[in-house]
């Protein structure tokens, strides 16, 4: 396999949190060729109107997307899907209700050409506190949340404002520091979750996110930088970023590709033929561009 590694996002969370709704939203709105991997087909995981064809192993979805189940052998299923559906942009791996998402990311170590991009854990605004109060599930829910790079607090519209506020506080207590994104019907900007960020190099103007929750800037460090230091600063600092992606020149020549998902970051070598600049997306409520500006020149997207 040549070219950049294919990113895999694990979508975790307990039953009913809205994993399937999120997946369908991303299929409709991301514009990416997605492969959706579900633990088992179960009740049909894909909205009927999106389905083009269906056989035992694979559901073909409009826009060149596919869906398959992975059962007990996720690694083989991942290998198979990259063969059956070449040209994918991103894989969404929906985990079962009690799975610990971090251990799924570990399985990806075996796969050349795939890269664990991040863990998104769905939390049901109407139900997560109750689920976590079930003593059989308390620690499982906590472990799922611990593994999240981004928590999506879903179904925010289904609860009274004071309940939503209480759940928000509960979540912040349980996962201090983790980026929490609120959503209705799983509607979260694909750019935020999947890093489907049009990079400056690609020449087309970023249209911005319809989602009024976020704001974005492009960061241009003045000098060649240590990409690892920069990536760590973007991810682990208190800048309030949810997602960042882009290229920076290396001190000795060549470029690095930086990707940040919540507090997870990766840096890989890239060729010279990329325009420098890192698209940074943060939650309006917590993102302070002035802080980010200390790292370099900021441009609007």
């Amino acid at each position: 396999m040549t070219g950049p590694a294919l990113p895999v996002t694990v979508i975790g969370g307990y039953l009913g949190a809205g994993k399937t709704t999120l997946v369908n939203h991303l299929l409709r709105s991301s514009g990416l060729r997605l492969a959706v991997m579900v633990n088992e087909f179960g009740a049909l995981p894909i909205d009927r109107d999106l389905i083009e064809a269906e056989d035992e192993a694979l559901i073909s979805i409009s826009g060149g997307c596919v869906c398959c189940e992975y059962g007990d052998d996720m690694v083989s299923a991942l290998m198979k899907i990259t063969e059956m559906a070449p040209g994918l942009d991103h894989i969404l791996l929906e985990s079962s209700g009690v799975a610990i998402p971090g251990s799924i990311m570990a399985s990806l170590l075996f796969l050349d050409g795939l890269r664990g991009d991040g863990v998104v854990v769905m939390a049901d605004a109407a139900g997560i506190r109750e689920t976590a109060a079930n003593s059989y599930l308390t620690d499982t829910i906590q472990r799922q949340l611990d593994d999240a790079d981004i928590v999506v607090l879903n179904k925010a519209d289904l609860v009274a404002p004071e309940d939503l506020a209480a759940t928000r506080t509960w979540l912040r207590d349980h996962v201090p520091g983790t980026r929490i994104v609120e959503a209705e019907h799983g509607k979260v900007s694909p750019q935020v979750l999947l890093g489907a960020i049009p990079l400056p190099r690609q020449g087309h103007k970023v249209t911005g996110h319809a989602d009024a929750l976020f704001q974005s800037r492009v960061l241009h460090p003045a000098e060649p930088v240590d990409a690892i230091v920069l990536a760590r600063g973007l991810a682990e600092g208190d800048l309030g970023l949810v997602r960042a992606k882009g290229y920076v020149p290396k001190p000795g020549g060549g470029m690095s590709l930086i990707q940040v998902v919540g507090s997870r970051w990766t840096v890989e070598d890239a060729g010279d033929s990329h325009a420098p600049g890192i698209v940074c997306i943060g939650l309006k409520a917590t993102f302070d561009p002035a802080q980010l500006e200390r790292l370099g020149q900021l441009d609007p997207v």
Partner: peptide
Amino acid sequence: RGLELMVPASVK
């Protein structure tokens, strides 16, 4: 250690 590594290792 752990089935999440062992199962895929077996396959490979």
